[in-house]
Amino acid sequence: MYAQLVETGAKRLKTKEEMSPEEREFHEKVDAETKIEPKNWMPEGYRKTLVRQISQHAHSEVVGMLPEGNWVTRAPTLKRKLQLMAKIQDEAGHGLYLYSAMETLGADRDEEIEKLHQGKAKYSSIFNYPTLNWADMGAVGWLVDGAAIVNQVVLQRTSYGPYSRAMIRICKEESFHQRQGYQILLDMMREGTEEQKAMVQDAINRLWWPALMMFGPHDDESPNSQQSMAWKIKRKSNDELRQMFIDQTVPQLEFLGCTAPDPDLKWNEETGHYDFGEINWQEFYDVLKGNGPCNRERIKTRKNAIDEGAWVREAAVAYAEKQKQRAQAA
């Protein structure tokens, strides 16, 4: 998932007594794992939180095409080129699908995109890092799509029906991307030259920490998580998800024959989990605030695409209108 810091507007959780009858009914449904559908009553905070989370996720899918677009013109073989093109096409589809889910909540796609272009909406910080060598296409698939899946598998059980269904559909494709990404790295490590192996390690060194940041701040630094969990929009805490990701990823890392840029990473016999070092939270908040390596370029590219395409969309609308009038006149 690509939503790292979603504002819920809640300072603390309401008690049952403080709730209106319809709000109580809503909570009973959520507690009973009955999905909330667009036509159902929902608290305004719930609706707004979902719009923020789903739009962040959708923006991330779309902005996430850019670091891959950086290499799709330079793929090393026909097979890899075709795979990357298909992946990019999937991500555009995920964006469309998520914007539709968001619109069931009464939000408007163009308005939300406008917020993104004004720097008012967030998207996953990971896409503000550059892709500097071909192995990044493998590492992004493996680590970034991999981290997304850990979150999204859990989100398949999210309380809002359209979002949950979107996640089920999207997860299948993300798993495919992850396996494909890992295979790129594995092939380079097994059969590649020394230069290619160095590319793989370099990609992992650069993307490892940013991938861990995808899960958002520590639970105690994440004031909105509690409300999101009560609404069952979120189903597991940031730290739980990050740990799940680490635990599943480290054996894959070792299988590659690569290392993580974390001297504290080691198996803990007692907890049955991997211990790992502290994330550079200053960097995390810097990137989130717009001060990552590629924030400006990513937004500028997206904004230019939509701004410069305005005349194209206007023409399509004008033409459709003319066609309608012609059909009526005939």
Partner: peptide
Amino acid sequence: LCELCGKAPALEEEM
């Protein structure tokens, strides 16, 4: 066409 990745006038066109 690959050069246009992320630069199309609408998300539908991107796809």
